[in-house]
Design a protein around this nucleic acid. Structure first.
Length: 561
RNA sequence: UGGGCCGUCGCCAAGCGGUAAGGCACCGGGUUUUGAUCCCGGCAUUCGCAGGUUCGAAUCCUGCCGGCCCAGCCA
């Protein structure tokens, strides 16, 4: 897959900084909080940060922003490391913000000594009240003018664990009247006793806030461009304030870009966590999830996700990307790389009465119609085969229909032309079996004197393997479930048909050896991959369907009610 | 006039004063033992709107309109 170098406003800025000699080498970082799994939106940031380091021969660190032990877990750090590597990237250094706790503490002392930070004893509610509103200025905390000595003493005792959670915080002394809420004496440190941090254990009961931690962590690592999403734009003045008021050599440039919004899914960690915790999906790696783990199990490749990120670009405008764009990326790759196979989702038996009872032919068929180098495989053909129920109808609904009908003919893919002679029904009048015949003169060549326009796929009844095939649809039935205010609970929009399991499916024998996550095109159906979780049975997940022009035509001919 | 940011085709997105790239989607037509792929063609006289500057404006200026973000001791 072609992966040409993208051009965007951030790369333009880097070009300028390099050209002006402001930096010698670009250094970026991807800074996830380990409180959940990575999703496709994170992939956008990963591809941006690591992609820049790669293209500019710079460096990129993976840094866990682990300043809130109440929400973070080791499980998530392991999963995140795995996902980043799976996407095809290797960090230069693996860091944790918690690696810097001691240095951060020292910088806090520096701020206190400069009279730029103070210990505040207002409760959380009082702090909120003192902060003012968007349109009215806040007012100074009564603790704002404590002496440096007193602040130093109190801050040390906060660290020593002398005070209860919430009783005191360290605040920056900036401007309670600032129109930017983030500058109204933001909290720098809060007390969280009795928690076990996944990296530092019980070493601390004092934890720094994001706004204090992030700029310093960036500077300590020599980050040149600190790329983050738009909601941090208002925090940039604070990011800069921190670095301007402490003794530190480096001052990274923060640049914001818009986060990814994908239609018909949810991207917030809170909602994804909800789906997992409430058992609405199988887990973080449920193939319907927009998580990296979910996309991986679904059958998406790292290259297809990178390509998607390249196509959506990087800007500051709000966006709402259509699912079709993502799908087109994986189709494009799988069209050339996936070996073809045949699988019947809804088996309907067809017995060819003029084909010898015990005869079995081994057909040699190509694995890819355009790539001879992908070789061939053996495909057994016999008297009884399964075709898909959708490929048969008693009477053709219109003249464009080109599948099997009573008395009509179709080509069996790679096999013979067959005709349906007789329909067997059950008491309820449902078609349960077909009796037909084949034309022995049509293997690899067209019949004499007539044209057969349809081609359908099939599996030998005796040789086909039972399998379960799972077909997926969008998780939500609303394009923007996050922003729909007309419904109280976004989960109202969950699509009840996001998963359809075909438990009676039959697949051709060659599929029995498919490895976990091996991808195939099931002809006329779509791209599928062997499930990585169900290892003891034959389960295939649909990656994406084939483009289906017929479905659109059928819609027009016979519109859904 | 709280502050910050954004508005180019249905969706994403180039464009940086010289006369609207590209991708996805969509609509034709051709090839085809996958209604797939592939191929060929179509798809913004116009850049949120209104003025202004200029020989020339999506690009510069002014004013409107619309949307997003901010009042966690979350990140």
């Amino acid at each position: 897959m072609e992966e040409s170098k993208p051009t965007n406003f951030i790369r333009s800025i880097i070009d300028e900084d390099l050209a002006a000699g402001r930096i010698q080498q670009v250094v970026t970082r991807f800074p996830p909080e380990p409180n959940g799994y990575l999703h496709i939106g994170h992939a956008k940031s990963i591809v941006l940060n690591f992609g820049i380091a790669q293209d500019y021969h710079g460096r990129c660190n993976l840094r866990f922003d682990d300043t809130n032990p109440a929400k973070e877990e080791e499980e998530f750090v392991a999963a995140i490391e795995h996902d980043v590597q799976w996407l095809g990237y290797q960090w230069d250094e693996l860091r944790f913000a918690s690696d810097y706790f001691e240095q951060l503490y020292t910088y806090a002392i520096e701020l206190i000594e400069k009279g730029l930070a103070y210990v505040c004893e207002l409760s959380a509610e009082q702090t909120r009240a003192y902060r003012g509103t968007l349109k009215e200025p806040g007012k100074n905390s009564p603790y704002r003018d404590r002496s440096v000595a007193e602040n130093l003493d109190l801050f040390q005792r906060m660290r020593a664990g002398e005070f209860e959670d919430g009783s005191r915080v360290l605040r920056a002394k900036i401007d309670m009247a600032s129109p930017n809420m983030n500058m109204r004496d933001p909290v720098l440190y809060r007390i969280r006793r009795g928690l076990i941090h996944h990296q530092t254990g019980d070493a601390w009961c004092l934890y720094p806030m994001y706004d204090f931690t992030h700029p310093i962590s960036d500077a300590l690592e020599g980050i040149t461009h600190s790329l983050c999403t738009l909601e941090f734009e208002d925090h940039r003045p604070l990011y800069d304030w921190v670095l301007e008021h402490i003794t530190i050599a480096c001052h990274p440039r923060q640049i914001e870009f818009s986060r990814l919004n994908l239609q018909y899914t949810v991207m917030s960690k809170r909602k994804l966590t909800q789906l997992v915790d409430e058992g609405l999906v199988e887990g973080w790696d449920d193939p319907r999830m927009p998580t990296i783990a979910g996309l991986r199990r679904r059958g998406y490749t790292p290259a297809s996700i990178r390509e998607f990120c390249r196509r959506i670009g990087i800007t500051k405008s709000d966006n709402s990307v259509e699912m079709e764009l993502l799908e087109s990326c994986i189709r494009e790759e799988l069209e050339v790389s996936a070996p073809r196979r045949m699988a019947v989702l809804r088996p309907l038996k067809l017995t060819l009465s003029n084909y010898p009872e015990d005869k079995v032919e081994s057909l040699t068929v190509v694995n890819h119609p355009k790539r001879e180098e992908m070789g061939t495989r053996a495909l057994p053909f016999s008297r009884e085969i399964y075709i898909d129920r959708h490929d048969f109808t008693e009477v053709a609904p219109n003249k464009k229909f080109k599948r099997l009908v009573t008395g009509g003919e179709v080509r069996l893919r790679y096999g013979y032309v067959v005709r349906c002679d007789e329909v067997i029904k059950n008491a309820a009048g449902e078609v349960v079996e077909l009796i037909g015949s084949y034309d022995p003169q049509t293997l690899g060549k067209n019949p004499q004197g007539r044209k057969v326009k349809g081609v359908i796929h099939w599996v030998s009844a005796e040789h086909g393997l039972p399998a379960e095939i799972r077909v997926y649809d969008r998780l939500l039935s609303h394009p923007a479930p996050d922003s729909d205010k007309s419904v109280e609970d976004w989960k109202t929009h969950l699509n009840p048909r996001s998963l359809i399991r075909y438990t009676e499916a039959r697949v051709e024998p060659a599929l029995g050896e498919a490895e976990s996550l091996a991808r195939f095109q099931f002809e006329r159906e779509g791209y599928f991959c062997r499930d990585s979780a169900a290892t003891d049975s034959l389960v295939f997940n649909q990656v994406v369907a084939l483009r289906d022009t017929w479905a659109k035509i059928a819609q027009v001919i016979n519109p859904a009610p």
